[in-house]
Design a binder for these strands. Sequence first.
RNA 1: CGGGGAGUAGCGCAGACUGGUAGCGCGUUUGGUUCGGGACCAAAAGGUCAUGGGUUCAAAUCCCAUCUCCCCGACCA
Length: 570
Amino acid sequence: MYWSKTFIPTLREDPGEAEIASHRLMIRAGLTRRLAGGLYSYHPLVLRSLQKLETIIREEMNRAGAIELLMPALQPREVWEQSRRYSIMGEVMFKLKDRQGRDLVLGPTHEEVITDLVAHEIKSYRDLPKTFYQIQTKFRDEIRPRFGLMRAREFVMKDAYSFDISLSAADKSYQAMYDAYCRIFERCGLRTKIVEADTGAMGGKWSHEFMVLADAGEDGLVECPSCSYAANLEKAERSVPLAEQAVSSEPLRKISTPGARTIEDVSSFLGCRPSSLIKTLVYVADGKPVAALVPGDRDVNEKKLQNVLEASTLSLADEATIQRVTGAPVGFAGPVGLRIPIVADISLKHAVNRVVGANKADAHMLNFDINRDAAVSLFGDIVIARGGDGCPRCSGSLAEERGIEVGHVFKLGTKYSQAFGAEYLDEKGQRLPIVMGCYGIGVTRTLQAIIEQQHDANGIIWPPSVAPYQAVVLPMSSTPEALRVLETLKASLEQAAVDYIVDDREERAGVKFKDADLVGFPMRVVISEKSLANGKIEIKARGDASAEMVPPGDAVITIKNLLSTAVPTR
RNA sequence: CGGGGAGUAGCGCAGACUGGUAGCGCGUUUGGUUCGGGACCAAAAGGUCAUGGGUUCAAAUCCCAUCUCCCCGACCA
């Protein structure tokens, strides 16, 4: 390919619309342009990367025994009603009507369609197990599209669904996908962290997320350096030392704290640390108010709280409810004398001499003793874990990181198969629900995550396996000898199946060097009169500081060697 | 939806407070000189100042409304 023939609209300056490195680079390197919020065109170069990534995914899915199919992106409302997700997912779905007035949605995911298909077509244990996958454009009306392809409203996803006769058989399918995911991300040159995750709107019992560690990541996670424990913050547990403090309780005392509603207000007013305060938050769980107590410097993890309460719905109480339950305006709630159930974080088990709200405007209580002064109905782990907390699996201490979720695998159980009547007959003629799993990779997001992880001040550093072209050739001379060397090089690159682009533009060398670095081709070959005078051409790997000078005849072997050491392509 | 910022030439920005000729850099076009890390000189093209309304002799500038985009939170691959 010739640079002048394709379409690579690079920018000299950083675009104003982009904040994080990968987003900025995708636009600057001419890989993509925004049409509207969360909607992007894939230019020729990034399309090549996308296709290479899809090929890797297909190879690994097929190797894992999954079968590719393709389902409609346009789906009838009915299947979503059937799984009862029309209301749960309703907000994120693009909805439309056909000319008959029938309701349709643009598929944000395909559990419903695939389960409906399987329910109709698979009847016998002889037909199982099966894992189907597709690579397809998904549509989600995101609350806030962000960071270019990182969170777009239209994006490419690989989704897979497994169907098994039993939980233990489903575990095998799950593991096969899990292993395939590890190979896929490794082949992309990505370092991923696999973390335990919450199942969210997908439902199901168990899931793992594949995270690309990056400061710009949207998810927080913790990991233990001493054992293998790692989890999304939404899910992460922590262990809390329960040794009793050798401090005796002082008498409870009410003090005036005019206007001090927040933890910061109160701690600076009293000149004490936030951790010596206890936050009292009023929630409504399944329609009934409950109070949650956490240390002043910690935040409630609502999912954990919901689990501890075994509640199916949970939300923060509104002002009126707080006023009614505590008898005080927002900001002064406290556990003393409260007549609703109280859940306290496990770390408060022996809390003494703390500061709490007094359930009275402009007043707090000093020297609160949780066992003496409050009626706690339940202690549990209800705060968001953070770095420094104890590991729940060993005696280590957790480290906190940020990550980009590029893949997610779920054990779904029978939630969807029961909703759609996806059942099979076993060898005894018994009718049983099919056990499912589902598995997603954000394909376009993965591409951006690669850039987020692999770039420097000059631009992108593509891993060879997903680079738009593996090599860029810069002809700096048009002498007959240089042209002959170029033609020979092209022929041998083609023979060796190294894809390349020749920068044939009428530009000065500096421009071509800058653009080559910006776009990030793994290999750069420079043919110039100066080096040709010594019978050499120049070869440089994008990530390396210096170039190698080799005879033209050794170019391809040198490139092959450098490519193979850059990143495993398997 | 709540909070914060921004819409002026293809891109990046100034101009606005204090109303009066729309500007700079990059890019683009033409000619010339240059030619291994975003060259130089000269000339040129390119604008409903986001949209609608209002105030005024006069609005990019002041006022009101709307739309769009970016960032922080709730959602997710």
